[in-house]
Amino acid sequence: MSIGHTLLGLLESGPRHGYDLKRAFDEKFGHDRPLHYGQVYSTMSRLLKNGLVEVDGIEAGGGPERKRYAITDAGVTDVERWLATPEKPEPYLQSTLYTKVVLALLTARDAADILDTQRAEHLRSMRILTDRKRKGDLADQLICDHALFHLEADLRWLELAAARLDKLKATVTA
């Protein structure tokens, strides 16, 4: 999961303090693994260096936690590209996908698009595996089937998520 893209996405709705960003991230995505402050500051400084965010203002008292960040146009494009790119089908994909979907919802993008894109990517993989299976021997078939069933499980999750988008939107934007 790309923390940088996620934080960028969170900034899309308006400039925030680093502390705010951490809280928002923890609240939406970090149920089991809250971010460390250090992670936030190092990521923000990387983004700052790449010109994806800028410092909107510094409050009195100094210290990194007093900086307010805003997303740049380049940052928005970067988020856009990231969201539109399907993930390579692999295990434990769901947290990334989930983050993408939530961010899309938060930034009023079409979340269904993300899921559909992903499902097309999955199906493409399944097609390749199916084709290999048809041409291969029994060992190939068994190996392919294993992968196919996993992909199918992901796909079903995608379907389910797509069906629950409206509900999810209501929760995250509440």
Partner: peptide
């Protein structure tokens, strides 16, 4: 509605 069946296709369209 089964992905493994759809995997036999060349292409898919989704109806929603």
């Amino acid at each position: 509605h089964e992905a493994r069946v759809a995997a036999y296709s060349d292409r898919e369209i989704v109806v929603r």
